[in-house]
Write a protein that binds this DNA or RNA. Structure first.
Lengths: 225, 225
DNA sequence: CAACGCTTAAAACGGCCGTTCGAAACTCCG
DNA sequence: CGGAGTTTCGAACGGCCGTTTTAAGCGTTG
């Protein structure tokens, strides 16, 4: 047995090529023939090394989820109120979003992997849903709890709703960066991670700070309508 | 030649079945055999009536875009400031979002069609991108202009960015309503259009009202960072 | 060298895809 | 009724899919 860092060239090349192509063209949109040709390996290599096409997808998740969750949680734990730092809410939002946008640095490939998850969430792939639930439920729940603590005026349901809108803004940016570029005639570039972070964090923070819709002062009432 | 309202049963059944199935499982995710079987028509009917699978997709757009754009623009023109009404910004946002969420009433099917567009935007289908640009550019530009007038403190780029986040929140809700339901353990139901509208409009409005990031008072500076 | 694992290679498998075709069925008008 | 035009039907086309099989290459070890 060899160390994970010394995986054969074929295996690593398949993992990285597949992640990129799946993110760009979807899981069902990429055939093993296209994939293996792009990676420069034999067609049978996927089934030999990963058992099946689905096994390859699961392997991508196994290799990416731990680093991304660790970075998100480390950033979350580093959040705190102090003079000279951004408000706590902005810190929490950035802790969740920044690793998902990263294309360089220690969490390089975060953008590609985020785009892959966004694409998979559309394809109604049963395996993908299981993988996302398995690898991201815990971290997302931690962030929702942190947001709820930072926003005591909101009901539990409202925190979930606004976190959902956060996911939407993030995922849509990864899925369809071309639409805003087209609409704005090139003025906005959603492929620029720094610009996205700069624009998205204040927008989302202001949304999270909107007043609660629950008229009743008792926090037990969850009806929003 | 017969009137458009008297389309044969086969043709209308194909249009509606295809819209629903494409929205749920993606364009490439639905084969003509599944589709025609679900619609109860012969396999060859798609190619006979629409020429090809892509022709069927284009026909769906032709039938849906005009009503949705007309309703959005009608609602936009009805916006105005008056005592007793919601603020202008909330009216504009609702004018854009409500027709896209509708599953009943005069713009019934808006939710399905919105979901279809969201799914197509992921599949990198060239035809889909052309259809969306052809049918939605004008309306979207109108709404961006209305938002810019209602938010004179923002730069042009900032209005586009925030409109982009609006699209993300809307599309993600249609694409992946199950994620928030799963995360919140059933507390939030993203399939409930009324609840979505109630939660989304105040959140987005607050985000749009966030201060401009452009430090300079001169509106010509567009740098956000 | 010989024998053994591990990896790569080429070819083929059955199956489903979008599309096409010719005949059958139906509709409508003289 | 009888024939023309339109729609439906079953069957088949070539092509690509994920997977499997079989054999060849290759480095290590006895």
């Amino acid at each position: 047995m060899i160390l994970a860092e010394e995986l054969s060239d074929t295996k690593t090349r398949l993992l990285r090529t597949a992640e990129r192509m799946f993110a760009e063209q979807g899981y069902t949109g990429v055939s093993l023939r296209q994939l293996t040709a792009a990676a420069g390996v034999n067609l049978a290599a996927v089934n030999y090394h990963f058992g099946s096409k689905e096994g390859l997808l699961a392997a991508i998740f196994e290799s990416r989820c731990r680093p991304m969750n660790e970075e998100r949680l480390a950033r979350l734990e580093a959040c705190g109120e102090a003079p000279g730092r951004p408000p706590l809410l902005e810190q929490i939002i950035a802790a969740f979003i920044a690793p998902a946008l990263a294309s360089t640095g220690e969490s390089a490939g975060g953008a590609t992997f985020t785009r892959l998850r966004a694409v998979l969430s559309v394809e109604h792939n049963e395996l993908a849903r299981e993988l996302i639930a398995k690898h991201f439920d815990a971290t997302s729940t931690r962030f929702v709890a942190a947001l709820a603590r930072a926003l005591p005026h909101l009901s539990r349901a409202e925190v979930f709703w606004r976190f959902h809108f956060l996911l939407g803004s993030l995922y849509y940016t990864m899925i369809n960066p071309g639409r805003i570029e087209h609409l704005s005639d090139g003025l906005c570039d959603a492929g620029d991670a720094d610009a996205v972070l700069t624009q998205m964090v204040p927008f989302l923070a202001a949304g999270f700070r909107a007043p609660s819709l629950d008229a009743k002062p008792t926090p037990r009432n969850k009806a929003g309508r």
